[in-house]
């Protein structure tokens, strides 16, 4: 009796082992294939990016010196021409975008996520439109900016902040959508706990919800700024001049240009010197972008001290 039971048990065990082993052998190539397809996707994305950077760096290697950021652009002396005015233009533009889009985007997200009653048709209408706005081509925002920021409406004229405002409109949906996701990810138990303590809605949002959502919001802002810094088309429409040999007076006065606009202008010239400059400009743009994003990531890490 005992022995038959033990035999039976060992047969079952052997059978199970065999089945597991076979199953493993059968499924394993699929598993491996899937993994390699995923790796391939990463490699394609990475190699493309790397190829672009290396190509630009190689082409512009002769011009990657301090002249690039200390000299003004010049059509007469391409050998000594730099892009100081474009660098300053981009910095001023980006600061303008940041101070505009962050408060606007986060406030809109907080309203939609924490206050809005989604049963109301106007709130659903706003939601739908924000999603649609994210898909509108940037040139359309350029036309909008030209009409209502530069000429009429705000009527700033072709100054840097007009460019900032246009870019801010362009990336606002990105910031709102990312911030809403960040707010959605805040566990409801935290809100409940705060209300249970006798906190008001505002106190709950300000002290509990926002701090938890900040890292996600910063990520959204990084994405938005990365998109804004490379935009050329809307800037051409709202008055970023392609050739400026002086820095803008301020965000609200004086002609300005930006790095991508400057690259566009150089790249369309026939002389090889300018093409090299354009390549060097691409590298400069990437460096500015990396500095900007590193600052944001540093800020994000400071805020995510308490992990959920």
């Amino acid at each position: 009796m005992m022995s038959t039971r033990a035999e039976k048990a060992s047969t079952v065990a052997r059978d199970t082992t065999r089945r597991i082993a076979m199953g493993k052998r059968k499924g394993i190539w699929k598993e491996q294939l899937f993994k390699y397809v995923l790796i391939l996707c990463i490699v394609i994305a990475f190699v493309t990016l790397l190829a672009l950077i290396i190509h630009s760096a190689w082409l512009g290697r002769g011009r990657l010196d301090l002249n690039l950021i200390t000299q003004m652009p010049s059509t007469l002396n391409p050998e000594t021409s730099g892009m100081q005015s474009a660098l300053w233009g981009t910095v001023i533009l980006m600061v303008g975008v940041l101070v505009t889009v962050v408060p606007l985007g986060i406030s809109a997200a907080v309203y939609l996520e924490e206050y809005a009653d989604t049963e109301r048709w106007w709130n659903r209408f706003i939601e739908l439109n924000i999603q649609n706005l994210a898909a509108v081509p940037s040139i359309v925002f350029g036309i909008l900016g030209l009409a209502y920021v530069v000429r009429e409406g705000f009527a700033f004229g072709p100054v840097a902040y007009a460019g900032s405002l246009t870019l801010a409109m362009l990336v606002l949906p990105t910031v709102i959508l990312a911030s809403r996701e960040a707010l959605k990810a805040v566990p409801d138990s935290i809100r409940q706990a705060s209300y249970g303590m006798g906190a008001t809605k505002w106190q709950t949002v300000w002290h509990q919800v926002l701090p938890v959502a900040v890292p996600g919001m910063i990520t959204g802002t990084i994405l938005a700024m990365s998109r804004a810094i490379g935009e050329t088309a809307p800037l051409l429409l709202v008055g970023a001049t392609t050739f400026v040999t002086f820095n803008p007076d301020s965000a609200f006065a004086g002609a300005y240009t930006a790095i991508p606009v400057q690259i566009y202008q150089w790249a369309s010239r026939p002389q090889p010197e300018f093409r090299e400059l354009a390549a060097a400009g691409v590298i400069l743009l990437i460096v500015v972008l990396l500095i900007m994003n590193s600052a944001a990531i540093w800020l994000r890490n400071r805020y995510s001290r308490f992990d959920l």
């Binding site: 935290i190 706990a193 705060s194 249970g196 303590m197 006798g198 906190a199």
Partner: peptide, 25 residues
């Protein structure tokens, strides 16, 4: 006051968790 089913401390320090109520009220 209320205590919930799942412990739900705030993502803050122990001190700030206790001090939160007195502060906001």
């Amino acid at each position: 006051g209320m205590v919930f089913q799942k412990p739900n401390p705030f993502p803050k320090s122990i001190f700030d968790n206790v001090a939160y109520g007195p502060r906001v009220t």
